[in-house]
Amino acid sequence: MFELRLEQGSLLKKVMEAIKDLVNDANFDCSATGFSMQAMDSSHVALVALLLRSEGFEHYRCDRNISMGINLANMAKILKCAGNDDIVTVKADDGTDSVTFMFESPTQDKISDFELKLMDIDSEHLGIPEAEYDAIVRMPSAEFARICKDLSSIGDTVVISVTKEGVKFSTRGDIGTANIVCRQNTSVDKPEEATIIEMKEMVSLTFALRYMNSFAKATPLASQVTISLSSDLPVVVEYKIAEMGYIRFYLAPKIEE
Protein backbone atom coordinates (compact mmCIF):
# COMPACT_ATOMS: atom_id res chain seq x y z
CA MET A 1 0.00 0.00 0.00
CA PHE A 2 1.07 3.56 -0.75
CA GLU A 3 -0.31 6.60 1.05
CA LEU A 4 0.84 10.17 1.45
CA ARG A 5 -0.74 13.13 3.20
CA LEU A 6 0.21 16.71 2.55
CA GLU A 7 -1.31 19.52 4.61
CA GLN A 8 -0.08 22.09 2.11
CA GLY A 9 -2.04 20.60 -0.76
CA SER A 10 -1.55 23.70 -2.91
CA LEU A 11 2.02 22.55 -3.37
CA LEU A 12 0.91 19.54 -5.43
CA LYS A 13 -1.35 21.81 -7.49
CA LYS A 14 1.61 24.07 -8.25
CA VAL A 15 3.80 21.10 -9.19
CA MET A 16 1.20 19.89 -11.68
CA GLU A 17 0.77 23.33 -13.21
CA ALA A 18 4.55 23.48 -13.65
CA ILE A 19 4.88 20.23 -15.59
CA LYS A 20 1.58 19.41 -17.28
CA ASP A 21 2.30 21.37 -20.46
CA LEU A 22 5.76 19.87 -20.88
CA VAL A 23 5.00 16.20 -20.36
CA ASN A 24 1.88 14.24 -21.33
CA ASP A 25 2.27 10.98 -19.39
CA ALA A 26 4.73 10.00 -16.68
CA ASN A 27 5.49 7.27 -14.20
CA PHE A 28 5.45 8.47 -10.60
CA ASP A 29 7.76 6.31 -8.51
CA CYS A 30 6.90 5.80 -4.88
CA SER A 31 9.59 4.43 -2.58
CA ALA A 32 10.75 4.83 1.02
CA THR A 33 12.81 7.82 -0.17
CA GLY A 34 9.80 9.69 -1.47
CA PHE A 35 7.60 10.49 -4.40
CA SER A 36 9.56 11.08 -7.60
CA MET A 37 9.10 11.42 -11.32
CA GLN A 38 11.33 11.75 -14.34
CA ALA A 39 9.97 12.36 -17.81
CA MET A 40 11.02 13.85 -21.11
CA ASP A 41 8.96 16.04 -23.39
CA SER A 42 7.84 14.44 -26.64
CA SER A 43 10.83 15.78 -28.61
CA HIS A 44 13.36 14.49 -26.04
CA VAL A 45 15.19 17.79 -25.68
CA ALA A 46 13.76 18.68 -22.27
CA LEU A 47 13.44 16.58 -19.14
CA VAL A 48 11.72 17.20 -15.85
CA ALA A 49 12.82 15.52 -12.63
CA LEU A 50 10.70 15.88 -9.51
CA LEU A 51 11.51 14.72 -5.99
CA LEU A 52 9.31 15.12 -2.92
CA ARG A 53 11.10 13.46 0.00
CA SER A 54 9.07 11.23 2.29
CA GLU A 55 10.02 13.23 5.42
CA GLY A 56 8.41 16.33 3.94
CA PHE A 57 4.93 14.79 4.14
CA GLU A 58 2.79 14.78 7.28
CA HIS A 59 2.20 11.10 6.66
CA TYR A 60 4.02 8.82 4.23
CA ARG A 61 3.65 5.08 3.92
CA CYS A 62 5.13 2.98 1.16
CA ASP A 63 5.14 -0.76 1.86
CA ARG A 64 6.84 -1.59 -1.41
CA ASN A 65 8.10 0.40 -4.37
CA ILE A 66 5.41 1.14 -6.90
CA SER A 67 5.33 3.03 -10.16
CA MET A 68 2.11 4.77 -11.12
CA GLY A 69 1.58 5.68 -14.77
CA ILE A 70 -0.41 8.91 -14.88
CA ASN A 71 -1.69 11.23 -17.59
CA LEU A 72 -0.63 14.61 -16.24
CA ALA A 73 -3.44 16.61 -17.83
CA ASN A 74 -5.95 14.35 -16.07
CA MET A 75 -4.10 14.57 -12.75
CA ALA A 76 -4.04 18.36 -13.11
CA LYS A 77 -7.81 18.35 -13.72
CA ILE A 78 -8.34 16.48 -10.46
CA LEU A 79 -5.92 18.62 -8.44
CA LYS A 80 -7.67 21.76 -9.73
CA CYS A 81 -10.68 20.55 -7.75
CA ALA A 82 -8.69 20.86 -4.50
CA GLY A 83 -8.95 24.13 -2.59
CA ASN A 84 -5.71 25.99 -2.01
CA ASP A 85 -5.92 25.34 1.74
CA ASP A 86 -7.04 21.74 1.41
CA ILE A 87 -5.16 18.82 2.89
CA VAL A 88 -4.41 16.30 0.14
CA THR A 89 -4.14 12.54 0.62
CA VAL A 90 -2.96 10.30 -2.24
CA LYS A 91 -3.58 6.59 -1.85
CA ALA A 92 -2.99 3.50 -3.99
CA ASP A 93 -3.53 -0.10 -2.98
CA ASP A 94 -1.21 -2.82 -4.23
CA GLY A 95 -2.36 -4.41 -7.44
CA THR A 96 -5.05 -1.88 -8.28
CA ASP A 97 -5.14 0.14 -11.47
CA SER A 98 -6.19 3.43 -9.92
CA VAL A 99 -5.01 6.07 -7.47
CA THR A 100 -7.28 7.99 -5.12
CA PHE A 101 -6.95 11.67 -4.29
CA MET A 102 -8.76 12.91 -1.19
CA PHE A 103 -9.16 16.61 -0.40
CA GLU A 104 -10.14 17.81 3.08
CA SER A 105 -10.97 21.43 3.81
CA PRO A 106 -9.02 22.84 6.79
CA THR A 107 -12.21 22.85 8.90
CA GLN A 108 -13.06 19.28 7.84
CA ASP A 109 -16.51 20.35 6.63
CA LYS A 110 -15.89 19.26 3.04
CA ILE A 111 -14.24 16.03 2.03
CA SER A 112 -13.92 14.99 -1.63
CA ASP A 113 -12.38 11.96 -3.23
CA PHE A 114 -11.42 11.38 -6.84
CA GLU A 115 -10.25 8.15 -8.38
CA LEU A 116 -7.88 8.39 -11.33
CA LYS A 117 -7.22 5.46 -13.62
CA LEU A 118 -3.56 4.49 -13.95
CA MET A 119 -1.93 3.76 -17.30
CA ASP A 120 0.87 1.54 -18.52
CA ILE A 121 3.58 3.90 -19.64
CA ASP A 122 6.71 2.68 -21.33
CA SER A 123 8.97 5.51 -20.23
CA GLU A 124 12.66 5.83 -20.75
CA HIS A 125 14.70 6.68 -17.65
CA LEU A 126 17.94 8.60 -18.08
CA GLY A 127 20.86 8.36 -15.68
CA ILE A 128 21.88 11.93 -14.88
CA PRO A 129 25.29 12.03 -13.20
CA GLU A 130 26.23 14.72 -10.68
CA ALA A 131 28.24 17.26 -12.65
CA GLU A 132 30.52 20.20 -12.01
CA TYR A 133 29.10 23.18 -13.83
CA ASP A 134 31.08 26.05 -15.39
CA ALA A 135 28.66 28.59 -13.95
CA ILE A 136 25.78 28.57 -11.47
CA VAL A 137 23.38 31.51 -11.31
CA ARG A 138 20.90 31.94 -8.46
CA MET A 139 18.36 34.66 -9.01
CA PRO A 140 14.77 35.58 -8.12
CA SER A 141 12.50 33.17 -9.96
CA ALA A 142 10.03 35.93 -10.85
CA GLU A 143 12.84 37.93 -12.46
CA PHE A 144 13.89 34.92 -14.55
CA ALA A 145 10.27 34.36 -15.62
CA ARG A 146 9.92 38.02 -16.57
CA ILE A 147 13.12 37.95 -18.65
CA CYS A 148 12.06 34.81 -20.54
CA LYS A 149 8.62 36.28 -21.22
CA ASP A 150 10.01 39.63 -22.35
CA LEU A 151 12.62 38.09 -24.65
CA SER A 152 10.12 35.74 -26.26
CA SER A 153 8.27 38.75 -27.64
CA ILE A 154 11.43 39.56 -29.63
CA GLY A 155 12.96 36.19 -30.56
CA ASP A 156 12.67 32.42 -30.34
CA THR A 157 15.98 31.61 -28.67
CA VAL A 158 17.93 32.99 -25.73
CA VAL A 159 21.68 33.14 -25.43
CA ILE A 160 22.64 32.88 -21.76
CA SER A 161 26.19 34.12 -21.19
CA VAL A 162 27.94 34.20 -17.85
CA THR A 163 31.00 36.41 -17.49
CA LYS A 164 32.67 38.34 -14.67
CA GLU A 165 30.22 41.15 -15.45
CA GLY A 166 27.15 39.07 -14.69
CA VAL A 167 24.67 36.94 -16.54
CA LYS A 168 23.42 38.19 -19.89
CA PHE A 169 20.23 37.00 -21.59
CA SER A 170 20.13 37.93 -25.28
CA THR A 171 17.83 37.32 -28.18
CA ARG A 172 17.36 38.50 -31.74
CA GLY A 173 14.36 38.45 -34.02
CA ASP A 174 12.83 40.11 -37.05
CA ILE A 175 12.18 43.38 -35.22
CA GLY A 176 15.64 43.67 -33.62
CA THR A 177 17.66 42.49 -30.66
CA ALA A 178 17.46 42.50 -26.86
CA ASN A 179 20.04 42.11 -24.11
CA ILE A 180 19.31 41.92 -20.40
CA VAL A 181 22.22 41.82 -17.97
CA CYS A 182 21.79 40.85 -14.34
CA ARG A 183 24.72 41.60 -12.09
CA GLN A 184 25.54 39.83 -8.86
CA ASN A 185 23.62 41.47 -6.06
CA THR A 186 24.01 40.11 -2.57
CA SER A 187 23.37 43.35 -0.71
CA VAL A 188 19.60 43.07 -0.71
CA ASP A 189 17.62 42.98 2.53
CA LYS A 190 15.83 39.78 1.62
CA PRO A 191 17.86 36.72 0.56
CA GLU A 192 15.16 35.75 -1.95
CA GLU A 193 15.90 38.93 -3.90
CA ALA A 194 19.62 38.20 -4.27
CA THR A 195 21.38 37.33 -7.50
CA ILE A 196 24.45 35.19 -6.92
CA ILE A 197 26.79 34.12 -9.70
CA GLU A 198 29.40 31.41 -9.20
CA MET A 199 31.62 31.19 -12.24
CA LYS A 200 34.50 28.82 -12.86
CA GLU A 201 34.61 29.36 -16.62
CA MET A 202 32.87 31.81 -18.90
CA VAL A 203 30.03 30.07 -20.66
CA SER A 204 27.60 31.01 -23.41
CA LEU A 205 24.80 28.71 -24.55
CA THR A 206 21.70 29.07 -26.69
CA PHE A 207 18.30 27.64 -25.78
CA ALA A 208 14.77 27.65 -27.13
CA LEU A 209 12.74 30.27 -25.24
CA ARG A 210 9.60 28.19 -25.63
CA TYR A 211 11.03 25.68 -23.16
CA MET A 212 12.38 28.31 -20.77
CA ASN A 213 8.90 29.84 -20.59
CA SER A 214 7.48 26.42 -19.88
CA PHE A 215 9.99 25.88 -17.03
CA ALA A 216 9.09 29.28 -15.61
CA LYS A 217 5.61 27.93 -14.83
CA ALA A 218 7.28 26.49 -11.71
CA THR A 219 7.86 30.05 -10.43
CA PRO A 220 5.11 29.87 -7.74
CA LEU A 221 7.00 26.97 -6.13
CA ALA A 222 10.13 28.89 -5.17
CA SER A 223 11.30 32.47 -4.76
CA GLN A 224 14.68 31.61 -6.26
CA VAL A 225 15.73 29.67 -9.33
CA THR A 226 19.14 28.10 -9.90
CA ILE A 227 20.48 27.92 -13.46
CA SER A 228 23.50 25.62 -13.90
CA LEU A 229 25.44 25.91 -17.14
CA SER A 230 28.31 24.02 -18.75
CA SER A 231 29.42 24.24 -22.34
CA ASP A 232 29.02 20.51 -22.94
CA LEU A 233 25.89 19.74 -20.90
CA PRO A 234 22.18 20.49 -20.89
CA VAL A 235 21.27 23.47 -18.70
CA VAL A 236 19.62 22.67 -15.37
CA VAL A 237 16.89 25.04 -14.18
CA GLU A 238 16.05 24.12 -10.60
CA TYR A 239 13.25 25.24 -8.29
CA LYS A 240 13.56 24.03 -4.70
CA ILE A 241 10.27 22.92 -3.17
CA ALA A 242 10.17 24.17 0.44
CA GLU A 243 12.06 21.67 2.61
CA MET A 244 10.81 18.74 0.58
CA GLY A 245 12.77 18.44 -2.60
CA TYR A 246 13.00 19.98 -6.00
CA ILE A 247 11.77 20.23 -9.53
CA ARG A 248 14.60 20.28 -12.07
CA PHE A 249 14.31 20.95 -15.76
CA TYR A 250 17.06 19.90 -18.15
CA LEU A 251 17.28 21.37 -21.63
CA ALA A 252 19.72 20.47 -24.37
CA PRO A 253 21.49 23.49 -25.85
CA LYS A 254 21.01 24.61 -29.44
CA ILE A 255 23.40 22.97 -31.85
CA GLU A 256 25.81 25.31 -33.63
CA GLU A 257 24.66 25.72 -37.22
Partner: peptide
Protein backbone atom coordinates in the same frame (compact mmCIF):
# COMPACT_ATOMS: atom_id res chain seq x y z
CA UNK B 1 13.21 20.52 -32.53
CA UNK B 2 15.51 20.47 -35.51
CA UNK B 3 18.18 22.59 -33.87
CA UNK B 4 18.58 20.79 -30.56
CA UNK B 5 20.21 17.49 -29.64
CA UNK B 6 18.16 14.85 -27.90
CA UNK B 7 19.00 14.48 -24.22
CA UNK B 8 20.16 10.91 -24.89
CA UNK B 9 23.19 12.51 -26.55
CA UNK B 10 24.27 13.71 -23.10
CA UNK B 11 22.78 11.19 -20.67
CA UNK B 12 22.68 7.40 -20.84
CA UNK B 13 19.44 5.48 -20.68
CA UNK B 14 19.13 3.53 -17.46
Amino acid sequence: DIFQDALETYFDSK
